[in-house]
Computed example of a mutant assay.
Amino acid sequence: MNFDLGLVGKRALVTGGTKGVGAAVVRNLRDAGVRVAAAARNAPEQREAGVFYVAADLTSAQGCADLAAAALARLGGIDILVNVVGGSSAPGGGFAALSDAEWERELNQNLMPAVRLDRALLPSMLEQGSGVVIHVTSIQNVLPLPDATTAYAAAKAALSTYSKSLSKEVTPKGVRVVRVSPGWVETEAAVALAERLAADAGVDYEGGKKIIMDALGGIPLGRPARPREVADLITFLASPRAGAITGAEYTIDGGTVPTT
């Protein structure tokens, strides 16, 4: 059976597009025939062929505005917007360790880039009567780790709720909005964390991975997801093959989140 995704000639903007899941999404879309703009704080030293890179600080309103303008100018419009950018640098210590500045930093990294870019780019999608917006949330919006990720989890939960509301508003006008909620993904940052935990505990890398999986309550699959696996899901959801999917959230976590 021919499973052409129907993406040739589409125009996409991917945030967080130089590492981890974002980089895998960029490669997938490029390989599917999409014209891709990839955004990150810094352009990579090694660039994917055929990809337009934009360096932008998406934690600021101006950075988001500059990125949107650059993408529209280069691509002439947007058909697919994938908001992958996110992360956390909050300290451990629970709620008491989270100052106003820490809360603001987490919101500006995990919620506001999507809000600002949607506001800048959705008008062009609505004008053409078509488009797909995919927001990468996290299983921590339902399974937070209170020692260090309370603010991150809350920001991702806000992103999820915002996305659902947005889908109700713009889907009748031709624009789909979908959420993808990964669990632990073996990105460059995840590998570095596992290596650090392994060194502290005097175990090997697999032992470091087990420490993380145990902290999550276990991963029934027995391993973290790979960036390409998450990217494959995102690529399908961005395609016309998923044309009836909107307003939904897809968990990809190896079974981490228990049934509620």
Rank of each mutant, 00 (worst) to 15 (best):
A56C: 08
L81P: 03
E104M: 10
V84H: 00
E45M: 11
E48K: 10
E104G: 03
R47S: 12
G86C: 05
A90H: 00
A101F: 02
V82E: 03
A69F: 06
W103E: 00
V84Y: 00
A61L: 15
N83R: 07
G94F: 14
A55Q: 05
L75A: 09
G50L: 09
Y53V: 11
L75S: 08
S60G: 15
Y53R: 13
N83K: 09
S89G: 13
V84L: 01
G94E: 13
P91C: 08
A68K: 02
F95H: 11
E104R: 13
A69Q: 15
E102Y: 02
P91F: 07
V54T: 05
E106A: 11
D57H: 05
G76E: 15
T59P: 07
A97D: 04
G86T: 02
A90S: 14
S89A: 14
R74S: 14
A68Y: 07
I80A: 06
A56V: 05
Q46P: 05
D79Y: 12
S89C: 07
V85N: 02
Q46L: 14
V51H: 07
P91T: 04
S99L: 02
L67R: 05
G50D: 09
G86E: 01
L98S: 01
A101K: 04
D57E: 15
S99P: 04
L58F: 08
L72R: 07
D100G: 10
A90Q: 00
G94N: 11
I80N: 03
G86W: 00
A97F: 05
G50Q: 13
F95E: 11
A49C: 06
A90K: 00
N83A: 10
V84M: 02
P91M: 06
V82W: 03
L98R: 00
L98A: 02
G76W: 13
L72P: 00
N83L: 13
R47M: 11
G77F: 10
V84P: 00
L75C: 10
S60H: 06
V54F: 08
R74A: 15
N83M: 09
G86I: 00
R105V: 03
E106H: 05
L67D: 04
A61Y: 05
V82K: 05
R74I: 13
E45Q: 15
V54W: 02
G92P: 06
N83P: 09
V51K: 06
A70S: 13
A49W: 05
L98V: 01
A70Y: 03
S88H: 01
R105P: 04
A90M: 01
R74G: 09
L98M: 08
G77A: 11
D57P: 05
S60L: 12
L98N: 00
L72A: 07
D57A: 10
E106D: 14
Y53K: 12
Q62R: 13
A68R: 03
A96G: 09
I78N: 02
D79W: 09
L98C: 03
G87M: 08
A73Q: 15
A71W: 07
D57Y: 04
L58R: 01
R47E: 15
V82F: 07
G92R: 10
A56E: 02
G76T: 10
V54M: 04
G87A: 10
S99W: 01
G92I: 03
Y53H: 12
G76K: 06
A101L: 07
A55R: 03
C64S: 14
C64F: 07
G76Y: 11
G92W: 03
Y53W: 13
E48H: 13
